[in-house]
Design a protein around this nucleic acid. Structure first.
Lengths: 248, 248
DNA sequence: ATTCCGCCTTGATGTGCATCAAATACTGGT
DNA sequence: ACCAGTATTTGATGCACATCAAGGCGGAAT
């Protein structure tokens, strides 16, 4: 008993365990038994800190691991051969990145930290080994990948058929909803990305993003002070996303 | 020896086996041993024929199985609450559809046959059972999902940053490349979808798709007679996709 | 062969967003 | 606290694509 106490008081020991991680409701351990979660700790090879502005991995690098975000905020982006690039997503604590690398053993996008971040490194072959033994983990890995596919369907709908205001409204609602699931405010958020990065994600130019923010402010839907955004009228944003084109 | 011969001559016996399927280089059995492929036959519950214009599954339906396309051609599309819809992909023989359903146990898109089609129905729990035993299958399932994620990244790049001509060029090149991998011509193809469906996929209106085809014809890049397309200058299409914006 | 209907093409016009440009606000480093 | 560089806002203008409209083609049913 005394031994256990001493071990637990060692901050190193506490920190590396999935069972003690405050993201366990959002991250890989979702839906597993306490016993199974303990086994997940073997899956996490180590932690890695990523400085703001630097890459966790880059297009072309060998794929070895998936990464669970512990803290911080990332963007992922792909580049075409002629140098254009496209932000494909923004990821926050509890989310998994690196799935793009599985198919060809090499990453096909960049993952860049938008603020200082820390990730759990999970070697993919260990994930595969363990998910052969723990059915719940196998299912969970499948769900994570399927969720990413479904999310991207939503982005395709946005990029293919929505207008600027609808895109930005959908973007803001999605961000606050995910932040809220992590215990943050439903109505207030700090953007970790530039207008240009938002624009890239939404298929708009940065000026259009800026103008659309200004429009929302005029309409009393949000307050914007640089990257600090307060949503005053969530309903109005929802209406923009869902009912914009009903008049046709 | 005589017995084997007789069995093989029974057309039923031949047809249901993955080991005899002429898509085995493209479909689930990819990279498995002969012995493992035999076991996959247990995975395929049955076949299902889908008439042109009807759905294999629809948004909201319970998810049970993945489907391997044996013959025919599908589109998948998502719908927003206000009725717009977006084609998220076109699928052909050897490709797997239904991955969207895993995450919530319900499908989130429609899969509609664009010509009479036949699919192998693979109950997902059997896939999970079997992929716990056959490492190569587990890896393959992961790769299929990762491939879909990467494909969608490409579509996001297309929708977010390309102009009409580039989008259509990329679309045509992608289609012929996949058809070529199935033994069809590198330069000739028959479109199974309408201009409107192409437009939905590419984030364009059908008139723009039509005009862009006409432009390609004027430029001597393709010949178009309704849905029959012959590519005269693949290089020109590639240049459109890759170098369009270099002048900037 | 004729008719119908969905699909496609083409033209005229409009508009939402991009582009170009310039001023201002903010951030990080020293 | 100051400075340099970056991010943001806002205005003026242009263009790519959407929208509206009309006519033509072709396949399926009779």
């Amino acid at each position: 008993m005394a031994d256990v106490k001493i071990q637990n008081m060692n901050p190193q020991t506490i920190k590396v365990a999935c069972s003690n991680c405050n993201l366990r409701e959002l991250c890989m351990p979702l839906g597993l038994s306490a016993e199974e979660i303990d086994r997940l700790d073997d899956m996490v090879a180590n932690r890695r800190k990523i400085k703001r502005g630097t890459a966790l991995f880059r297009n072309g690098e060998k794929f070895n691991s998936l990464y669970a975000i512990r803290t911080g905020f990332f963007k992922t982006c792909v580049a075409s051969e002629d140098g254009r690039d496209q932000v494909t997503g923004f990821q926050m604590a509890g989310e998994i990145i690196g799935l793009d690398g599985i198919v060809n053993d090499h990453h096909t996008c960049d993952a860049v930290a938008l603020e200082d971040a820390e990730v759990c490194v999970m070697p993919f072959d260990r994930i595969e080994d363990l998910s052969r033994e723990i059915n719940g983990l196998q299912r969970h890995v499948h769900k994570i990948m399927s969720r990413e596919i479904v999310r991207e369907h939503g982005v395709m709908l946005l990029l293919g058929s929505m207008r600027a205001e609808e895109r930005l409204a959908a973007f803001l609602l999605n961000l606050v909803q995910r932040l809220h699931a992590r215990g943050f405010s439903q109505s207030e958020l700090i953007l970790r990305m530039t207008r240009e990065e938002i624009g890239s994600y939404l298929g708009l130019k940065l000026e259009t993003v800026s103008r659309t923010f200004s429009k929302f402010v005029e309409d009393g839907i949000v307050e914007v002070k640089q990257r600090h955004v307060r949503i005053l009228d969530t309903e109005a944003l929802s209406r923009l996303v869902n009912h914009q084109n009903e008049c046709h």
